[in-house]
Amino acid sequence: MGEIHELAPLPQRTLDGWHRFVASGDRDLLASLLSEHIVFRSPFVQSPIPGRPATLLVLTTVVQIFENFRYHRSFIAGSHDVALEFSANIGKWQLKGIDLIKFNDAGEMLEFEVMVRPIKALAALGEEMGNRIGPQLSQLKQAAGVLR
């Protein structure tokens, strides 16, 4: 109890890069942070979405949709896991969320899970994501062998 955790140096460097990506929307920067084997867990679907192409598509789209996006707090668990609390707007909806990120030993993002509340803001996000990338994401999931 009372332990202070900090990320290992390589995950910390990746997390710094993530914050630069959020500020810039630079797709190439984001690609350099993701493991080839990354798994994305969406608040909309039960099955994880594997692979760098799908994660790139989702995350580069989300940063375009969110308005007034900002991180508030970071929670570090061990040397390779972080939770980031955020808020944003989608149209009239104010939302809060958490990004749960697990890093591999090389410092790359290996798992990225998003949780969002309230349900009406989540529904607005889902609708906007579906309008923008629904068909592309379905193709990437099928290519990765994920049916739902």
Rank of each mutant, 00 (worst) to 15 (best):
G2A: 15
E3R: 14
E3Y: 11
I4V: 15
H5A: 06
H5G: 06
H5M: 09
H5F: 14
L10M: 10
L10T: 07
L10S: 08
P11T: 07
Q12C: 00
R13A: 15
L15G: 05
L15M: 14
L15S: 01
G17D: 00
W18I: 04
H19N: 03
R20F: 02
F21R: 13
S24Y: 09
D26S: 09
R27Q: 11
L30T: 13
L30A: 14
A31H: 07
L34P: 00
L34A: 03
S35D: 13
S35W: 09
E36G: 12
I38A: 11
I38P: 09
V39Q: 14
F40K: 01
F40N: 03
S42T: 13
S42R: 05
S42M: 04
P43G: 04
P43H: 02
P43R: 04
V45P: 03
Q46D: 07
S47F: 08
I49A: 11
P50K: 12
P50Q: 11
G51R: 05
G51E: 02
R52V: 10
P53I: 15
P53S: 10
T55H: 06
L56A: 06
V58W: 12
L59T: 08
T60N: 05
T61I: 11
T61Y: 07
V62N: 07
V63L: 06
V63H: 15
V63D: 07
F66Y: 15
E67G: 09
E67D: 14
E67Y: 04
N68L: 09
N68Y: 06
F69E: 04
R70T: 10
R70E: 13
Y71R: 15
Y71I: 09
R73F: 15
S74L: 13
A77I: 14
G78C: 07
G78S: 12
D81F: 08
V82D: 03
A83H: 03
L84S: 02
L84R: 04
F86P: 05
S87D: 14
S87I: 08
N89H: 14
N89K: 15
I90M: 01
L95W: 11
K96D: 06
I98K: 00
I101T: 01
K102L: 00
K102R: 14
F103T: 10
N104E: 10
N104F: 03
D105G: 02
E111R: 15
E111N: 13
F112V: 10
M115W: 11
M115K: 03
V116S: 05
V116A: 12
R117Q: 10
P118F: 12
A121G: 11
A121Y: 03
A121P: 01
A121F: 05
L122E: 02
L122M: 04
L122A: 04
A123K: 02
A123F: 06
A124T: 15
A124W: 05
L125K: 02
G126R: 04
G126I: 06
E127H: 08
E127P: 00
E128H: 05
M129D: 02
M129S: 01
N131T: 01
R132A: 10
R132Y: 02
R132M: 02
I133V: 12
I133N: 06
G134Q: 01
P135N: 05
Q136G: 02
Q136F: 01
S138H: 05
S138C: 01
K141M: 14
Q142L: 08
A144D: 01
G145F: 11
V146N: 03
V146S: 09
L147F: 08
R148H: 05
